[in-house]
Structures are given as C-alpha cells and as structure tokens.
C-alpha cells in the first residue's frame, strides 16, 4: 500500500492527474474530518479539503518524503484551517464564556437524571469550550485527541517544539476541564 502511494506521488509530480486523484481519494475524508474538528463547521471543512489538495498539488515538488504523505497533507490542512480561524476571529466577536447557558450541576450517575439533557449540556459546553481555545491549542488538542498523532508528529505538523506542543495540549485540556466539570459533577 505504501509503495502504491509512493508511486502515485512520483507520477503525480510529473503531472499525472489520475495519480493525484488516487491521493485525493485516499486522504480527502480524513482531511474533511480534521477540517471539521478545527473549524467547527461543514462549510469551512469543505473549503479546507479543496484548498489543501490544491496547495498540495502546487507544492508536490517540495514534498521530500521525510514525513509521511498523510502528515504532510495534515500540515497543509492544519495551516489553512488556522488561517481560516484567525480570519474568522478578526471578523467575529468572540463568544463570551458568560454567555454560556446557566445549567444546574448534575452528576452523570445520579439517579433520575435525564441523560439526554445531560449529554446536550455536555455537548454545548464542549462546543463552546473548543471555540474558546486559541488556534494553536485547538489544533494541538484536535491532532492529539481526535487524530491520534503523537507529540512529535504534532510538533512537526504545526512547526512547534515538543515543549510548546505539550503546553498547548495541557492548556486545552485545562480549559475543557473548567468548562465541563461543572456539568459533570464534582471532579473528585
């Protein structure tokens, strides 16, 4: 499989559209998922997919094979998503944490708790908390938590040192805890 991908990359570099199509078909779904996690909506996620592969095609000569093609594509997608987020941030007023709906503190395992209401509260808090992360925190957390990349790979993808990558993840997790623990009951 790996050989097939390497061959497709080599052929795509010579302008072979069909070869590039194989790469697009193999990776577009995961790029969409990453774009959605990073931007938070389908419209932007589709933009991320298009722009990522367009940029990849133009920069194919610069791909040196040191990182996997998947990591390289993720780097392009992450950078473009971060650009979108920064642009969006400039245009929109940030949502104030105080605007979060006031919810009663409930414990998940409390008898009689309406599970549906509970999970809706968790999801709402989670969505708001994710939007409240800085671009770097969000990207590092998404790549670690949802995409399963190692600290090394995340650093490589985002162009960060190990310590900066770890700190971004720590800060993201701390913010998520602050947002979620009030609705999830006592932390300990």
């Amino acid at each position: 499989m790996q050989e097939t991908e390497a061959a497709a990359i080599a052929r795509a570099r010579t302008g072979d559209g069909e070869a590039f199509r194989l790469l697009v078909e193999k990776h577009s779904r995961s790029v969409f998922r990453l774009g959605f996690r990073l931007t938070g909506n389908q419209h932007d996620a589709e933009d991320v997919v298009q722009e990522t592969f367009l940029r990849a095609y133009r920069m194919l000569d610069r791909y040196d094979g040191r990182a996997s093609f998947h990591t390289w594509i993720y780097r392009i997608a992450s950078n473009y998503s971060l650009d979108l987020l920064r642009g969006r941030k400039r245009m929109e007023q940030r949502k104030d944490e105080d605007q979060l709906p006031v919810v009663e503190t409930v414990a998940a395992d409390e008898p009689g708790v309406d599970r549906l209401v509970y999970s809706t509260q968790v999801r709402e808090r989670l969505t708001a908390a994710m939007e409240d992360l800085s671009e770097q925190e969000r990207a590092a957390f998404v790549l670690r938590h949802y995409e399963g990349l190692s600290i090394d790979q995340i650093g490589e993808t985002l162009g960060l040192a190990d310590s900066a990558t770890k700190n971004s993840i720590f800060r993201a997790v701390q913010k998520l805890r602050r947002a979620l623990e009030p609705v999830m009951g006592a932390a300990r």
Binding site: F32, R37, S119, L126, L176
Partner: peptide
C-alpha cells in the same frame, strides 16, 4: 476525573460525508 472529561470530548462528532 480527567478521564471523564476527555472521554466526554468524544461526544463531538463529525458528520460523515
């Protein structure tokens, strides 16, 4: 406590194209 929060983060799903 940490596990509960991080496991809950999986509630954010992505629409499947």
């Amino acid at each position: 406590a940490l596990q509960r929060v991080l496991n809950a983060a999986d509630a954010l799903t992505v629409p499947e194209p």
